[in-house]
């Protein structure tokens, strides 16, 4: 199939003592291979829920999630979730170690990534000595190390300052384009959604349904910063802004 992921009639209810929370209701989405999708929506509408269902963290749902055979997913979270008692290198290979995939080839790939992101010289240092941006880069390397086909990114840059955020999201963007990775990015940041993705999906308030799908047609061979200068950028921004604003009222 051309689609790497197909979601049909996905419904998710949380059960709490206070009552039932409908997080997703008959949600549908198709993701093509190599596509970068950004999901925006009001706080608490069910974005993280969607990702944890896709990733298989949570198996309690109704509906259908069909993924391509042997699809390898990796999850990147808002927190870098580094382990302070492991060195930079040990943190980078954590996923490989847990899945018993410490082959020579994989280790070389990790070293290549560490080198690429200027972390190789700190290889034997501990995360404590890294800046926020470097930590997030290391989290990215750890995510890429297992060579996933699809990356699920849940607000991965939101703890960073503006500069680090732009630089690192560009790193991720370039590597995903280059290696033809499929990405689902959840973000609150409209600019990020537009500049990062091929398609922005705007969700409604909880339970989330798709409010609008906006294909982004801008040059994708340039950096994220360059993409912000595209003449279509402002139009996209206004469109999404309106969809979100409508939601709030």
């Amino acid at each position: 199939m051309n689609n790497i992921l197909e979601i049909k009639n996905l419904t998710k209810n949380y059960h709490t003592k206070e009552g039932e929370i409908k997080a997703l209701n008959n949600f549908n989405l198709e993701v093509k291979e190599g596509e970068i999708i950004a999901i925006v929506g009001p706080s608490g509408c069910g974005k993280s829920t969607l990702l944890s269902l896709i990733s298989g963290l949570d198996l309690d749902y109704k509906g259908n999630i069909k993924a391509k055979d042997k699809l390898k997913m990796a999850y990147m979270l808002q927190s870098d979730a580094l382990l302070p008692w492991l060195t930079i290198y040990e943190n980078a290979i954590l996923g490989l170690k847990i899945n018993h995939e410490l082959s020579k080839e994989n280790i070389e790939y990790v070293l290549y990534l560490l080198d690429l992101y200027n972390l190789k010289e700190f290889k034997d240092a501990y995360p404590k000595s890294l800046s926020g941006g470097m930590k997030q880069r290391l989290a990215l390397i750890r995510t890429l190390a297992t060579k996933p086909d699809i990356l699920l990114l849940d607000e991965p840059f939101c703890a960073l300052d503006q500069q680090a955020r732009l630089l690192i999201s560009d790193d991720v963007y370039q590597i995903c384009k280059k290696e033809h990775k499929t990405v689902i990015l959840v973000t609150h940041n409209i600019e990020e959604a537009i500049t990062f993705s091929d398609r922005v999906i705007v969700l409604s308030k909880r339970p989330a349904i798709i409010k609008n799908i906006i294909p982004i047609k801008m040059n994708n061979n340039v950096s994220i910063l360059e993409r912000r200068k595209d003449e279509a950028y402002q139009q996209y921004f206004d469109l999404i802004w309106k969809d979100l604003e409508y939601n709030e009222s």
Binding site: M73, Y75, L77, S79, A81, G95, N99, T146
Partner: peptide, 18 residues
């Protein structure tokens, strides 16, 4: 134990012992 780290391990399909 930090919930993000726990989530990370679960997304890596770590077993209980790991």
């Amino acid at each position: 134990t930090d919930e993000y780290r726990l989530k990370l391990f679960k997304t890596m399909h770590a077993n209980k012992r790991q």
